[in-house]
Design a protein around this nucleic acid. Structure first.
Lengths: 93, 93
DNA sequence: ACGGCGCACTTCCATTTTGAAAGTGTTAGC
DNA sequence: GCTAACACTTTCAAAATGGAAGTGCGCCGT
């Protein structure tokens, strides 16, 4: 598997990069992510589980049944790729 | 829709970036892409149609029923994003 | 000139993924 | 005790994906 395919295996799933994009601005709670992204809660739960398993983000317990999701170092390293894609998306030709 | 979402709307589909990665090395014919990527021919046809419609690549007629697919300027502009993702995928942590 | 081959697809159908909606369990505050 | 917020899970329909087989067309050897 090529390096690109390996990357897409983790962040190529729908919503995955959009979740990481939000978390680049700081930790978020589950409900925040859902409202900001406008995605279904079942998909969000699935993606967060996958991204956590891949070491992209981690759960931070806050209070009782409240926790935050924050990027790991590996998640932060996606910043360059997201910036490049965002720039490309912004170019209207 | 955010700029990232706009980009993913075009190149976020499965196989799309892998196709562009191949074409970064030069024009390819349909059968070449299929063999190099190991993907089903129905999906390849669908992706090529979408990427052509999005202005990422164009068909170049070669001979009778033979043609090549080549990146447009907009397709070449994906190089930075692909490089960033490939680098991220290569990092083993 | 005719049969088979390679090329670029399309069609069909099973499997997987995605998505909307509603439901679950827990704790906090009134 | 009652309601609300939070973080999910469950259910089921719709859409995307994938494997396999089929289509049309020109070339090439016989």
């Amino acid at each position: 598997m090529s390096e690109l395919a390996a990357a897409l295996d983790i962040v190529g799933a729908r919503w995955a990069l959009l979740i990481v994009e939000q978390l680049l601005e700081g930790p978020r709670r589950y409900g925040d992510l859902q409202r900001e992204l406008g995605m279904g809660t079942n998909m969000l739960a699935t993606r967060l589980r996958e991204l956590e398993a891949a070491g992209v983000l981690r759960r931070l317990p806050l209070r009782h049944n409240t926790r935050a999701y924050a990027l790991t170092e590996r998640g932060l390293a996606l910043s360059a790729a997201i910036t490049a894609l965002r720039r490309w998306g912004a170019e209207q030709t």
